[in-house]
């Protein structure tokens, strides 16, 4: 088991380095001169050129990338153009807010999605099942930022029940979490349902029934564990969607997280901030996937025994 974890951790490193390479390469092509941005549009030519030399902007791409990588590994992503604070600190300080939001969304999604998916599957063709499927379909079809706006419209503007912005206590988490979590809840519901339906059709369920096992136990003990295995993987992948979707939700709800920081930076063309944010989120995503893989190995004895 430990071998498995260590192996996966080691595989993580080249992936992350690869991510930095890709994202850096992309951002490298951003038009606009960082030196100009810092000194201002009207700065004299020689000053700009001098700053460019200092910042190493005239070096070939590979050199610049390696320099970037070296610094990144030390946690140095440069300084923000405007605030002059280290970019890394800016991103990292916003992270807890994003994590709070994403986790809330995920918990909501799982808490709703799995039970409903199970019930739907065991009552296939019933009215409940049909309603669930329709709602799940709607959930997947809604842009989450639109849902956020509609929720704000209803609960904040018209009903005045919930705050519409900022991270100011539990009440302010509700609407954003629902916004972010609905799409994922819908996906988890569908996934759980189809996985359960698939499992219930299996021969070993028939064996359990032929043994005289009560239906309840057949579902909860025999079917569930098998059905949840693929769902766990999907949950991990959905976390990536949550991290990405947080960008939009944080904008709608003025939530002080990494996503909102990114959007501001984009507007002002602060590439280091965008760069750092994307890499940071990717690293978090990779770690989450790693945890999911480990959990998966725990659940499925076929994987567990490979690494005994």
């Amino acid at each position: 088991m430990h071998k498995y974890i260590i192996r996966r951790l080691l595989m993580l490193i080249p992936v992350i380095i690869g991510v930095t390479f890709i994202v850096y390469s992309i951002m490298f092509f951003t038009p606009g001169d960082p030196a100009l941005i810092i000194l201002g549009e009207n700065a004299p030519e020689e000053q700009v050129e001098k700053l460019r030399e200092e910042m190493g902007l005239n070096d070939p791409f590979i050199i610049q990338y390696l320099r970037f990588l070296k610094n990144a590994l030390k946690g140095d992503f440069g300084r923000s153009y405007s605030t002059r604070k280290p970019v890394f600190n800016e991103v990292f300080s916003r992270f807890p807010a994003t994590l709070k939001l994403s986790t809330a969304g995920l918990l909501l999604a799982v808490a709703i999605g799995i039970p409903i998916g199970i019930i739907s599957a065991t009552r296939q063709y019933s009215l409940l099942d049909s309603i669930t499927m329709v709602l799940a379909l709607l959930g997947v079809s809604m842009p989450n930022f639109w849902l956020g706006l509609m929720l704000i419209l209803l609960f904040s503007v018209r009903l005045g029940l919930l705050p519409s912005g900022g991270d100011v206590g539990f009440a302010s988490l509700i609407l954003p979490a629902i916004t972010l979590g609905t799409g994922v809840a819908a996906i988890i519901t569908r996934m759980t349902r189809s996985s359960m339906l698939e499992v219930i059709r299996q021969d070993y369920i028939r064996t359990a029934r032929a043994k005289g096992v009560a239906e309840r136990r057949v579902i909860n003990k025999h079917a569930l564990k098998n059905a949840l295995i693929p769902v766990v993987t999907v949950i991990g992948l959905q976390f990536g969607y949550l991290l990405g979707g947080a960008v939009l939700t944080e904008t709608v709800f003025s939530w002080p997280g990494v996503g909102r920081l990114m959007v501001e930076a984009i507007k002002q063309k602060y590439t280091p901030v965008v760069l750092a944010s994307v890499i940071f989120m990717s690293v978090v995503f990779s770690i989450v996937n790693l945890l999911v893989d480990i959990l998966y190995a725990f659940l499925d004895p076929r994987i567990k025994s490979q690494y005994r």
Binding site: Y204, R206, T207, N226
Partner: peptide
């Protein structure tokens, strides 16, 4: 008691 045709799928893998 009843036993079925395909032993590969008749047992619960977990």
């Amino acid at each position: 008691s009843m036993i079925f045709q395909d032993p590969m799928t008749s047992l619960n893998p977990v």
